[in-house]
Amino acid sequence: MTSHVDQAVAARIAAARAKREQQRQQRAELAEARTAGLAARHRTKLQRQTEDTPPTPGGTMNPASVLAANRVRTSEFNPRSYSHISSLAELHKAYLLEEFERTGDYAPGLPVASHTNTLIIRVGDEIGGFCAVDPHHFALELIYLAPPYRGRGIAAALIQQMRATCPQRMKAKLPFTPQGQALVTRTGLQPLQPAAASVQAAAAQLAEIHRVVRRDCPHKKGNPAKPCRRCWPKALRRSTEYAIRQYLAEQRDRAA
């Protein structure tokens, strides 16, 4: 026969076990809800970041109509044109800074390189973006539109137009930003691992970023592995200038 003390102890133990089990179930439910919430937020973010407008009725999109309605024209990047050089530099800097604010890290993709062809995108009378493609691998390297020209379907229309004239299935080089992933998914491009030339060019640009950070950043002792929100943006801007200077030097050497 158990005493009142034993019964009280047993009751407390049972209550403690029940409480722990209840807490365990609550934690599991919260974790499940958090996972579902993060997934939903990610899907919403991708949807908001996409540069495309919904397809026209019937599920098709007429790229020519979209481009004509927005007065979009493209021209090959001219390394002898000051307006092309300065506009491309400002656009690529804006791209890097936007992605740094979004992710806190370096974003992939070069504005110009020896292995790419770069197109300047005009919207009306203004230079509103650029598009770099790798003609050797039929792959999109990077496409960027300034904020005022997004949400009109311009990027998707340009890609669809390029796909229509591409002799092979058009691809897009990895890695993607969230915005780039949304556009690639929307347009049906095939992901492609970057070739050696792309990897080397990207490595050179990243090395330049790290060099500037080590030299100029006093806040995190010049450690590039810990992006400083005060000094990394300056390094990103310098990296754009470095990439364009390298390309222009290569073009001069070829012409010599």
Rank of each mutant, 00 (worst) to 15 (best):
A155I: 00
D52K: 00
P55Q: 11
A156K: 08
D253V: 05
R34N: 09
A182P: 00
Q7Y: 11
V66T: 13
A18C: 04
T103K: 14
A28K: 10
K19Y: 09
L91Q: 12
E141K: 07
S86Q: 11
R238I: 08
Y106D: 08
N62H: 14
Q190E: 11
K234S: 13
L46A: 09
I127H: 00
K234L: 10
F176K: 01
L91Y: 07
K234E: 10
V66M: 04
G128I: 08
R41V: 03
A255T: 07
R150E: 04
A14C: 05
A249V: 13
K220Y: 15
Q47W: 03
Y95C: 00
Y247N: 08
A14N: 11
V213I: 15
P108I: 06
L88F: 08
A139Q: 01
A156T: 05
A8C: 07
I143M: 10
L206S: 11
I121P: 06
F176L: 04
R27D: 09
Q161S: 14
A235I: 05
L88Y: 07
T116C: 05
G222H: 05
K173M: 13
S3E: 11
A197S: 12
N70G: 01
K234Y: 10
R73C: 08
M162A: 15
G188R: 02
L96R: 10
A157N: 00
A18D: 07
T177W: 04
N70R: 09
A243F: 06
S87F: 03
A196H: 10
V199E: 11
R80P: 02
H115G: 04
Q7E: 12
E90F: 11
Q193L: 14
A94H: 14
A69H: 06
R169H: 03
Y247V: 00
Q22L: 14
Q161T: 12
E250N: 08
A202D: 11
S83E: 15
V66H: 04
K226C: 12
A132N: 02
Q23H: 13
R150P: 05
N70Q: 14
P57K: 06
L192Q: 12
L174Q: 07
E29Y: 06
D134G: 01
Q205G: 06
T240S: 13
W232L: 14
L183R: 00
G153Y: 05
T53S: 15
V212W: 12
E76V: 15
N78L: 07
E21Q: 13
I209Y: 04
T165N: 10
Q181V: 00
E250D: 13
S198V: 03
A182V: 02
L91S: 06
L183E: 01
P233T: 10
G59W: 09
V213L: 13
T44S: 14
T240F: 06
I209N: 06
K19E: 12
A40P: 02
T53L: 13
V123S: 07
L30M: 13
R43P: 02
S239V: 04
F77C: 07
Y149D: 04
I120D: 05
E98A: 11
I121L: 03
A64I: 08
V133P: 02
Q200T: 15
T187W: 04
P57H: 09
S114N: 12
Q160T: 00
A196W: 06
I154T: 04
E208F: 15
